[in-house]
Structure formats: structure tokens, C-alpha cells
Design a protein around this nucleic acid. Structure first.
Length: 463
DNA sequence: TCTGGGGTCCTAGGACCC
DNA sequence: TCTGGGGTCCTAGGACCC
């Protein structure tokens, strides 16, 4: 996404004033959430593992608290590895002041000398984190007219109309303080004239940080940073850039645009501009999802086609249900098959009109899977895309509400009129005003031709 | 890094149309 | 038919993000 549909050419229209963009990034969010309901974890190393269950060793680190990181625990690390570096703290139920989180205990009592550091391991409880996130979002929407939620723990705010540069730091501090006071978790905030720089700024002083990059200073702020810190430069691009002798954002800013465009196409141009502190994307409200998927890995890679089929069937059901929950119909059904070492294959089939048809999802998914009958498979997924939403939708981003009844946290309580009815007419103003094209407010959905497309990568939240 | 789950965007080739 | 140019849609894969 960048400058096609919504954004304008630089210099066109009223746009020349500097925007004031905040990037708000929760600090090790999952771990902070665990501390919220289990205050004894404050100051302790906390590891939240996905696919992890108590007493087990499989799964991967979703988030590690800073205390845990000091022992070498990192995001996306295998739990087994994390346990090597930071053993699990034996937990006895007795000392546990009744934190309502009734675990099951039992697994302690193991041998081991309790001398060295040990940490608390918890499985991901995404519903609980969502409920915390909802509270944070309410504050953000209260502080800005335009909020783009990027994920459960991250958002951009355009606050140009709410503050001014000479007091922007105070404004940002106010946002931070409200989050901490009203929800009880900390955030790092970056303030800059554009999204790209704000993102990097929020990361710059990470736990509990506040970094302001004033207009006119973005380029010098970025110059010394490693290219990999630029959003959109991952391991592959970073390596290529290094081979070209480009190591810092400053190097990239000084590079030859034509060379970059040659090597990386349109992306090269974009990254070049980002490195120079130029980014004309406007903050636009979070839109509807373009695809929905479920995937799951086998404990051990399998060749058993019945096992694959069974798994795909389950996933197909789950995806169809997810789509129905979100009032989404789909025109494309696809599967993803991952074979060792980590080769990702996708197959997809489009049908003539959008449907809501769970049986069809299963049927098509199984049919597409058949091609891989003889392969060893480590992971399968099912996805629907080419979505079309029925009017009633809304429900913002995470369809599943049902925040658990853990309501003793202070709750800002005005999220209602903010996020619910807004979308249908207002959001279009923002994203579409220049493209004089369609306007029936559902119609602009499809011009972006989403695509099944593939992902592949991995890495986890936290940052 | 041996690897979990959920997404987004971009590119390239082929089919098909005028 | 072999001859361009232009456009759209679909599929598959790659890279990236949290």
C-alpha cells in the first residue's frame, strides 16, 4: 500500500502542512497483560508462549518480558530453547495469593537446584489480551480523530488537529500516561511528521519510551540507524543492501535511486524515500480484512494423507465460521501447504460469486490439498479471500468480542460510538477523496483486488 | 532462528478480451 | 493469423509485519 488509491501527490491540495503522527506501541504487550491479572509477575521474567501448554516444551515465544530477554529469551524462539536459557520457575500453588487464574499446578516439585534465574511461563490467552487492547484503543480513539490499528498492540494516530508541534511532546505524554493509568500497561510512543519515522521513533527508546522527531529533522534522526530498522526492510533486503555497501539509513538516503529501483523495483524507491524521512502516506482508519485464514502445524511432519485431510477439514470449518462471524462472504478459497524445510505452497480457486458456504470451503480445500497427497507436510492452512461484507458487519477488527468477564480493570467505556458506526460513510472520505472513482460506500471495497497471496514469514508480536 | 499463527502488499506469467 | 498495444482477472510465490 502506498500511493495509489488514497494518498495524494506531494504538493497537491491542502496537504503541504506537516502532519503530526503518533505511533503507539505497547511494551511486551502479552507479558504486560499477564502481569495485569497476576501482579506478582511484576519485575519477574515472564515468557508467553504460543502453542505452549504448561509443563510442555513445544511452542514458540510470543513475547518475553525485558527481564526474560536479559537471559537470552527472544521472540519466535522455540520454547525448548527458551527453557534452556531461562528455566521455568517452580510454582507452588500455596504461595499463590488467589490470583483468579486457577492453574492446575502439579508440575513443580521437579528436582533442580533453584539457585539461578528462572522465569514464569504462560500460554497465550488471546481473548484476554484483546480485552485489554480494547481498553487501550478506546483511549487512542479518544485522543485522535484518525486511528489506524495495525495489530493488537500497535496503532498510528494522526493528531494534527489535536495538537501542535511545540506541544506535541506533552500531548504524547498525555496519551502514554492515560494508557498506563487507566489500563495499567505501558506503551512506547514515537512522534514524527509521518508514519514511517513515527514507527521508528517509537522503537527507539523502547520500554516506556517517548521520542519526538520534529519536522525537518527526520533525515538526520534516521541517518545513523541500521537499514534493517526501516519498516519494510527484512532480513532478505537487508542482506542485499549490505552487499551493495548500504548499511545505514543514511547510506540508503545517499544511494543512487536508479540503482535501487533497478534492484528492487517500486519497493526500492519507497525505501529510499523512507530513509530520507519522506513518506506521504496518510494515516487511514483500519479497514476491513482482505482475507481470513487458519493454519496449524503438525507435531511432526506427516505423509499420512488422512491426517492431512482431517486437519484441513477442521481448519476449513474454522475459517468458514470465522468468516460468518464477521459477516464476510468470499469468492476465493485456498490452501497453504508447508513442506520441509520450510517451503510454502499455495493453491487457490475462485468461484463466480461470493458465498457463505462452509461445505464448499471444505470441499474445495480438500480438492486443492489432493495435489500434495504424496508430500511430507509440516503445516497446512485454509484461507478465504476476495471478501465481501454484508452490511451489518462493523465489529471493527476483531469480530470476536466477548471480552471475558474480567472487568475489574478501569474501563474507559466510551468506545461505543467511536468505533461502531463510523465506518460506512466517514472512512471513505479519508481514503478516497482524490480518486474520483466510485463511491457507493461498499463499492470501493473491491478495487483493491486483494489476493490470496502468500505470506510465509514468521515472527511474533512484541517489539 | 529449525519455525508458531494471522495478516498485507507486490510481482510475474498466463488466459482472455478488445 | 503472428502481429502490436492495452487492459483485466486469476494464480503462485516472495518478502515483510506483528
Amino acid at each position: 500500500m502506498s500511493n495509489r488509491g488514497g494518498s495524494r501527490l506531494p504538493g497537491v491540495g491542502d496537504e503541504r502542512e506537516e502532519r503530526i503522527v503518533l505511533h503507539v506501541d505497547m511494551d511486551c504487550f502479552y507479558a504486560s497483560c499477564e502481569r495485569l491479572r497476576e501482579p506478582a509477575l511484576h519485575g519477574e521474567p515472564v515468557v508467553v508462549g504460543m502453542g505452549y501448554e504448561e509443563g510442555e516444551e513445544h511452542g514458540a515465544v510470543a513475547t518475553a518480558s525485558y527481564e526474560a530477554r536479559e537471559h537470552g529469551v527472544e521472540s519466535a524462539q522455540a520454547i525448548g530453547k527458551a527453557l534452556e536459557r531461562l528455566p521455568q520457575k517452580p510454582e507452588d500453588d500455596s504461595t499463590d495469593a488467589g490470583s483468579d487464574d486457577g492453574d492446575e499446578g502439579g508440575n513443580d516439585a521437579d528436582e533442580s537446584e533453584e539457585t539461578e534465574a528462572a522465569g514464569y511461563y504462560r500460554p497465550v490467552d488471546i481473548e484476554f489480551y484483546k480485552s485489554v487492547s480494547t481498553d487501550v484503543r478506546a483511549i487512542l480513539h479518544d485522543c485522535a480523530d484518525t486511528v489506524r490499528e495495525v495489530s493488537i498492540d500497535e496503532a498510528y494516530l494522526d493528531v494534527t488537529d489535536r495538537t501542535a508541534w511545540n506541544v506535541a511532546e506533552g500531548f504524547a505524554r498525555h496519551v502514554k500516561n492515560r494508557i498506563e493509568r487507566e489500563v495499567g500497561v505501558t506503551a512506547s510512543v514515537g512522534v514524527a511528521p509521518n508514519m514511517s519515522a513515527a514507527k521508528i521513533a517509537s522503537d527507539h527508546d523502547k520500554p516506556d519510551g517517548l521520542v519526538v522527531v520534529e519536522p525537518g529533522t527526520t533525515r538526520e534522526f534516521l541517518a545513523p540507524l541500521d537499514v534493517a530498522e526501516i519498516h519494510g526492510i527484512g532480513p532478505v533486503t537487508a542482506r542485499t543492501l549490505r552487499e551493495m555497501g548500504i548499511e545505514t539509513a543514511g547510506d540508503l538516503a545517499d544511494a543512487d535511486l536508479r540503482v535501487l529501483a533497478d534492484r528492487f523495483g517500486e519497493r526500492g524507491r519507497e525505501l529510499y524515500h523512507r530513509a530520507r524521512g519522506d513518506d506521504d502516506r496518510r494515516v487511514t482508519p483500519t479497514g476491513r480484512p482482505k482475507s481470513l485464514s487458519r493454519e496449524s502445524a503438525f507435531t511432526d511432519p506427516t505423509t499420512d494423507s488422512e491426517e492431512k485431510r482431517t486437519r484441513v477439514n477442521t481448519l476449513a470449518e474454522a475459517v468458514a465460521e470465522r468468516a460468518r462471524d464477521r459477516n464476510a462472504m468470499y469468492r476465493t478459497i485456498g490452501v497453504k501447504v508447508v513442506t520441509p524445510p520450510f517451503d510454502v505452497h499455495t493453491r487457490a480457486r475462485s468461484i463466480s460469486g461470493p458465498v457463505d458456504d462452509p461445505e464448499l470451503v471444505e470441499e474445495v480445500a480438500l480438492d486443492l490439498l489432493a495435489e500434495f497427497d504424496d508430500d511430507t507436510v509440516r503445516k497446512v492452512g485454509v484461507r478465504v479471500s476476495n471478501l465481501q461484507f454484508t452490511e451489518s458487519d462493523q465489529t471493527s477488527l476483531d469480530g470476536f468480542d466477548a471480552p471475558k468477564p474480567t472487568e475489574n480493570r478501569p474501563r474507559p467505556s466510551q468506545s461505543r460510538d467511536e468505533s461502531m458506526p463510523s465506518n460506512s460513510s466517514e472512512s471513505n472520505l479519508d481514503s478516497d477523496s482524490t480518486a474520483g472513482a466510485e463511491s457507493t460506500d461498499e463499492a470501493d471495497e473491491r478495487n483493491g483486488e486483494e489476493e490470496p497471496s502468500r505470506d510465509g514469514q514468521v515472527s511474533l508480536t512484541d517489539f
